[in-house]
Design a protein around this nucleic acid. Sequence first.
DNA 1: TTTAAAAGTAAATAATAGTTAACTTATATG
DNA 2: CATATAAGTTAACTATTATTTACTTTTAAA
Lengths: 88, 88
Amino acid sequence: MPNLSERFTSTQLAEAITAKRTGMKLSLVDVSEALSISKPTLVKIEKGDTNVQLANLLKVMEYLGLSFSLLSDDATSKEKTEVSDDWY
Amino acid sequence: MPNLSERFTSTQLAEAITAKRTGMKLSLVDVSEALSISKPTLVKIEKGDTNVQLANLLKVMEYLGLSFSLLSDDATSKEKTEVSDDWY
DNA sequence: TTTAAAAGTAAATAATAGTTAACTTATATG
DNA sequence: CATATAAGTTAACTATTATTTACTTTTAAA
């Protein structure tokens, strides 16, 4: 059973993107051309550089079928809790 | 029971950030000064504008105790699955 | 209602990410 | 090995985001 409350670091995110892209047999140029972003920018994203536009990261993730869910450190409990619509 | 496979949109992320900040009784200026980012940038983030630096978003999230987990659309199943270390 | 604090906006400038084009390693594969 | 494809890098230039400062609007409390 996967640990659903695991935080993701930007490095892990970058690794997951590369893994998903290569698993889909897509080259950097395949993806960069499909999304109209440059290869150096895509390389930055896959290196875990956080000095990139959020919009570019989201385009890449959507194209590869990756998405986020959000976790909130809850001060009142020891566990991190999933943020849902009725959370706030 | 929270739905752990729920995708988050950038709008929902923005709303969660504002909710967490106000819940912590912090003003925009409190956060922007603590993180050395400008108030207009923080407002952009809280409006769900994705044309912001990932680094700035992550700083805000970390400060407020929010983090991501990653979901992968798995082509072989109907469910989205959590990305874990042994996923790729 | 007056005041103060916070939220939100705007415009000019500064800072920096993104693009392009070319080049250099790597990694297969015939 | 030789060749082709992909990965990764670099530098000059362009495009865009971030900052600063100031202002307007909203909210809430006295």
